[in-house]
């Protein structure tokens, strides 16, 4: 498989894997409108993944024929959907990050600029969706508040990795992006009567490891489901 060394690969993997996770909600979401919303966000991410992975090689080969250690996505996006609060916490952390990074890339001249300029407008809706749900769950019932806080705390240790410089994008202002991200997350959580988690933003065993191809245990099962059909029926079309 020919793979070009480009930051489009890790960013494309983020979009692909989160798209797959969100797609797992189909048929299971709490209400029909949310089912449709999550599927639409997944579709936006899949569109991004297709453009980005095509900059790195053949999109289908990259998605369906790589082994776990060859994926460069953040560990955050591969985390299981959990309850609805976990999905929203993951969306809030990731879409806030993605919007900031794509705003930066859209202002540049790299091969990523056209996609970033296009996608940043879509991601603004993803972030707004996560923001509104965080407010509703955090400032809702005791049960929804407790679940949202638990989800935010549980995923916090995967957020440090977001600001490890991506290979090929070392020049991006990572510390500034991190500061702005923290400000935005803090603002949303305060409005939602939630508490910004205090623990470390990474586990000692896996600092920034998704970008190096080290993934968490649930990722293998995600890949098995995502790749099974393509590997069982090579070249199949419909």
């Amino acid at each position: 498989m020919n793979v070009t060394a480009t930051p489009a690969l890790p960013l494309g993997d983020d979009a692909l894997i989160l798209s797959h996770r969100l797609g797992e909600w189909a048929g299971r979401a709490p209400v029909l409108e949310e089912e449709v919303a999550l599927a639409n966000i997944a579709l936006d991410l899949l569109g991004q993944a297709r453009v980005l992975l095509s900059l790195a090689g053949d999109e289908d080969e990259l998605a369906f024929l790589r082994e776990e250690r060859q994926f460069r996505n953040l560990q955050l996006v591969e985390q299981p959907n959990g309850d609805f609060a976990h999905t929203i916490a993951r969306q809030l952390y990731f879409s806030t990050y993605q919007e900031l990074l794509f705003e930066h890339l859209a202002a540049g001249e790299s091969e990523l600029a056209p996609l970033a300029a296009k996608a940043v407008k879509e991601v603004a809706y993803h972030r707004d969706h996560a923001h509104q749900w965080t407010l509703r769950l955090g400032d809702g019932t005791d049960e929804s508040h407790a679940r949202m806080q638990h989800a935010l705390d549980a995923l916090w240790r995967f957020t440090g990795e977001l600001f490890e410089p991506v290979e090929g994008l070392e020049a991006a202002p990572w510390p500034t992006l991190h500061d702005t991200w923290t400000t935005r997350i803090t603002s949303t959580l305060e409005q939602a009567t939630l508490t910004v988690p205090e623990g470390p933003q990474r586990g000692g065993w896996a600092a920034g490891a998704g970008r190096q191809g080290l993934h968490t245990e649930p990722f293998g099962r995600l890949l098995a489901e995502m790749q099974h059909l393509h590997r069982s029926h090579p070249g199949a079309t419909w």
Binding site: E33, V36, A37, N40, I41, K121, E122, Y125, D128, H129
Partner: peptide, 28 residues
């Protein structure tokens, strides 16, 4: 009603006068 409707480019709304739901082609 929802920021995402039948397609990614639309939002779902409801009219409070005639009570009909409708799609809104959302701004991008």
């Amino acid at each position: 009603l929802s920021r995402f409707s039948s397609t990614a480019c639309k939002a779902l709304r409801r009219c409070e006068s005639c009570r009909e739901p409708f799609d809104h082609f959302k701004e991008l």
